[in-house]
């Protein structure tokens, strides 16, 4: 029997009919472009083992999505798996695997549409894998091979990956004419919770795998080995990741309201009639309904979006920096070489 979050996870499997044709086609183009790169990256890697591995991994993600745990009041937590796949297999293989999972679900179970599949693959396959890997590995490096570094990384990468997927999905819906003031807060609110389940499962699975078969996680070995990550953190990597993240965030925040797909001010109507922000006020007390009182609709949504994302990034960055300086201090304290074992 499907529980509530099972239905909510549908929220990322957009069926056909809800995206308008230009939006769906645009995302097909984007998806095809990224997958073309991924195909090239994975088949270039001479590794003929990759094909059965990726195939079985797609089946694994599909099966793993069935494993769930009860949360509260009949809801359940489970896995989307993009971040996990990317961290275990690398970003490009992760994308291909997730793309095939999404495709299989649409073709076999009508779970997500066919025309909307481009957008669905982009959100659940490409973005989750990209965020999972390119946010996860620099974080791991920051933690310098500490065992709990993997725990934090697994959770943060998975949570953010789900949030980014939800943002992209909201954006596509908003571009298709669903009011951004409704879809963004609703999707982000729901997925903030779904993301917690994703994060917990991902971190538990990752730590289990790394502790039992570290040899299999070749994508992460260089990030997990304390001896190779002892050297000071590459400031450029951190800077680059932050910059890209911020650019994406600001970009998304700008596009969303402007793009709400309606020249005659769909958004404004919602604001003017003043019902939606009030209707949705309660759960979003920090940034009520994603808008800031006193500003005109579009501008306030943009600013609210930027502020929200900045807060998320500032938090993540702050935590990482805190940990990093702690670690450096600790290392300076005992300048004697640390045994490479006994770390895990």
């Amino acid at each position: 029997m499907q529980s509530l979050t099972d239905l909510l996870v549908f929220a990322l499997h957009v069926p056909d009919g809800f995206l308008n044709a230009p939006v769906a086609l645009l995302w097909w183009v984007l998806t095809v472009a990224v997958l073309a790169v991924a195909v090239r990256k994975t088949s270039g890697s001479l590794n003929e083992r990759q094909i059965p591995l990726m195939g079985v991994m797609a089946a694994f993600i599909f099966a793993a999505q069935m494993l769930n745990f009860p949360v509260l009041g009949g809801t359940s937590g489970h896995l989307l798996g993009g971040a996990l796949a990317a961290l275990l297999l690398g970003p490009w293989a992760g994308m291909l695997v997730m793309a095939c999972v999404v495709g299989l679900q649409a073709l076999l179970f009508q779970d997500g549409g066919l025309l909307a599949m481009g957008a669905n693959i982009f959100n659940m396959g490409i973005l989750t894998a990209a965020v999972g890997y390119w946010l996860g590995t620099p974080l791991l490096r920051l933690f310098g091979g500490k065992p709990w570094g993997l725990v934090v990384t697994g959770f943060v990468a998975a949570w953010v990956s789900v949030m980014v997927a939800a943002i992209a999905c909201s954006l596509q819906l908003a571009l298709s004419g669903v009011p951004a003031g409704v879809v963004f807060p609703a999707m982000l609110f729901v997925h903030a919770f779904i993301g917690v389940g994703e994060g917990l499962i991902t971190l538990a699975a990752l730590t289990f795998i790394v502790s039992t078969r570290p040899d299999l996680v070749t994508t992460l070995t260089s990030y997990l080995d304390p001896t190779t990550t002892r050297r000071p953190v590459d400031g450029r990597t951190v800077g680059l990741v932050t910059l890209v993240g911020l650019l994406c965030a600001v970009g998304a925040a700008f596009i969303s309201p402007l793009a709400s797909g309606d020249p005659d001010g769909l958004e404004r109507v919602a604001e003017d009639q003043g019902f939606l922000d009030r209707a949705l006020d309660a759960p979003f007390s920090i940034l009520p309904d994603y808008t800031i009182p006193g500003l005109d609709g579009n501008a306030s949504t943009i600013i609210a979006g930027i502020v929200g994302l900045l807060i998320v990034f500032a938090l993540a960055y702050g935590i990482a920096m805190l940990i990093r300086s702690r670690r450096q201090a600790a290392e300076e304290e005992r300048s004697a070489p640390r045994p490479a074992t006994g770390e895990r």
């Binding site: 489970h78 538990a204 699975a205």
Partner: peptide, 15 residues
């Protein structure tokens, strides 16, 4: 969640 995570991990290793 940790229990499920370990199940996911086990399934991964078998796969």
């Amino acid at each position: 969640a940790a229990v499920v995570g370990r199940m996911v991990g086990t399934l991964f290793l078998r796969s």
